[in-house]
C-alpha cells in the first residue's frame, strides 16, 4: 500500500467539511428557490379584471412598461402585512403595478382593497391558480419586476419586508434606465 493512498480518507473528509463550513457561514435561506423564469419573457395570459367585468389582457396591460406584478389574496395574512410597502411604491414611484388576485373570492378581494387602499392600476383574477403556476409561483405573496421588454428582472417570494422594499426601489430605478 502506498503511503499517499492512506491520505485519501483525510483529504475527502476535509473537502466535505470545508463545503459544510462554507454553507454554514454564507447567508443562505434553505427555502429560497431561485426562479427559473428570471431573465425570461413573461408568460402572457388573458383573464377577467377584478374591478369591472372587462377582459384583462396581459400583453396590453404590460405594453412596453416597467411593471411590478404582485400575487395576492384577501385570505393571505402576510399579503396584508406587505400591503403598505406596495402602496408606498405606488405613491413614490411612477410605475404600473398589476395585482393578480390568487384563488380568491372577488367580492372579498374588492372589500379588502377598499379597506386597505388600492395601489394596483389593474387587478387580474386568477381563480384556479393557473396563472400562478405559469409564473412559477409557489407561495403568495410573490412579487415580480418586469422590464419594458417584458423580461422578468426580479422575483421575491413571501411578504415584502423593509429590506426587500429598499431593494425593490433600487431595482425599479435600475430597470427603468
Amino acid at each position: 500500500m502506498k503511503n499517499h493512498l492512506l491520505k485519501i480518507p483525510f483529504i475527502f473528509f476535509s473537502i466535505i467539511l470545508l463545503i459544510f463550513f462554507y454553507l454554514l457561514i454564507i447567508e443562505r435561506n434553505p427555502t429560497d428557490i431561485p426562479s427559473a423564469l428570471l431573465n425570461k419573457k413573461v408568460q402572457q395570459f388573458e383573464t377577467s379584471s377584478l374591478f369591472n367585468s372587462q377582459k384583462f389582457n396581459s400583453s396590453q396591460e404590460f405594453d412596453n412598461n416597467v411593471v411590478l406584478v404582485n400575487f395576492f389574496a384577501s385570505w393571505c395574512k402576510p399579503c396584508r402585512d406587505e400591503h403598505k410597502f406596495i402602496k408606498k411604491i405606488s405613491e413614490k414611484k411612477n410605475l404600473k403595478i398589476i395585482g393578480i388576485n390568487y384563488k380568491d373570492n372577488p367580492k372579498k378581494a374588492i372589500e379588502w382593497l377598499e379597506k386597505l387602499g388600492n395601489p394596483y392600476s389593474n387587478v387580474a383574477i386568477d381563480r384556479n391558480g393557473e396563472i400562478a403556476i405559469d409564473w412559477g409561483v409557489y407561495g403568495i405573496p410573490e412579487t415580480f419586476i418586469v422590464d419594458a421588454k417584458g423580461i422578468i428582472k426580479f422575483r421575491h417570494v413571501g411578504p415584502i419586508t423593509k429590506k426587500i422594499y429598499k431593494k425593490i426601489n433600487l431595482l425599479i430605478d435600475e430597470v427603468k434606465q
Partner: peptide, 8 residues
C-alpha cells in the same frame, strides 16, 4: 414544469 419551477 421545469421551465416554470426550475430543476428543483
Amino acid at each position: 414544469l421545469t421551465s416554470r419551477y426550475g430543476d428543483f
